[in-house]
Simulated scan of single mutants.
Amino acid sequence: MATSFKYANKYVLITGSSRGVGRLLSEYMIQNGAVVIGFSRGRPAYECENYHHISVDIGDPKSVQEGFAVVRKLVPALHILINNAGVATSQYAMIMSPESAQKMLTVNIFGAFLVSKEASKLMRKNKWGRIINIGSIMSSLEPAGGSIYAATKAALISMSNVVAKELSSFNITSNTLALSGYPTDMMRALAPDVLDGVINSLVIPRLTMEDDIFNVIDFLASERSSYITAQTIYLGGIN
């Protein structure tokens, strides 16, 4: 990863920051000059001068409000929100437990809504903000075994687009990066046939690489992307 200061003087909030894509993006932002606030239910996976970990259950409104009370004390502004936290259960609908389905609904869409709601209040003060939602290409591919997960990621896109309309007058954009297969614990939990089906359905049938993610994040977070909002970018392309 190239080191620069493209995010100098930027305060970034990333949910699900302790592992996977959340940790990857936290490290990337810090290496590029940002101060990162990480929301996660677990303990911080690493320590750094420019990283502040807050234990938050994003599906719990009270926990989110308490987390943002801490954010307001830690940083003078919030410029970028990356709604990354998510859970996935790959299982056919007929045998999926209600608990698994409810957890995906709570974290993947309700949690993203709660965090976006509070973050936008902070962004509005400075009339500048970037909300980037980490979606999934499964919202479009709709593979067998992914009924609730695909539905929550489709709902995330709809929510992002509506939020974009509501916040446009405050110079706040809201977009979605729909990931394809990237090697995380969540991906490894998928049934091999489901993962193979997803990869083989892409226009460019390969796994996602780190720089693929960084490239889109940089584009959506850029000062020059003030006219880019209510959009979804599908990594790997969809037919």
Rank of each mutant, 00 (worst) to 15 (best):
Y28H: 09
Q91P: 09
A189S: 14
G236T: 03
P76Y: 09
I54T: 04
L114I: 09
L179P: 05
N175V: 03
G129L: 00
G20A: 02
L220E: 01
H79I: 02
F219T: 05
S201I: 11
I82K: 00
L220F: 02
I157P: 06
F68D: 04
G197H: 15
M1F: 15
G67D: 09
V36L: 06
T229H: 00
A2H: 13
C48G: 09
F110D: 04
R43S: 07
G146R: 12
S139R: 15
M104P: 07
D211A: 10
L179S: 02
I54L: 08
R19W: 07
S226C: 10
E47L: 13
A189T: 13
S168G: 06
S226M: 11
A119D: 00
F39H: 03
F113A: 05
G146H: 14
G111E: 03
S55P: 11
L25K: 04
G59H: 10
I228N: 00
I58E: 05
S97G: 12
I233M: 01
T229P: 01
I58L: 08
A144Q: 14
E27G: 07
S168K: 13
R124M: 09
R43Y: 09
Q31A: 14
N175D: 01
N108D: 09
N108M: 08
P183F: 07
S97H: 13
S226F: 12
P76D: 07
T208Y: 08
S55V: 11
M209W: 14
D185I: 12
P98G: 12
P98Q: 13
S174I: 00
G197Y: 15
G129A: 02
D196L: 10
M104C: 08
D218P: 01
V75M: 09
G86M: 02
A191V: 12
V35K: 13
L156G: 04
A69G: 11
T173N: 01
S4L: 03
T3D: 09
M1V: 15
M209A: 10
Y227H: 08
I14H: 02
A34K: 01
A221T: 03
A69H: 12
A2R: 15
S174D: 02
D57Q: 11
G42V: 04
A101R: 08
L74C: 08
A178S: 14
F214P: 06
N83L: 00
K125E: 09
E166P: 07
R41L: 05
S158V: 10
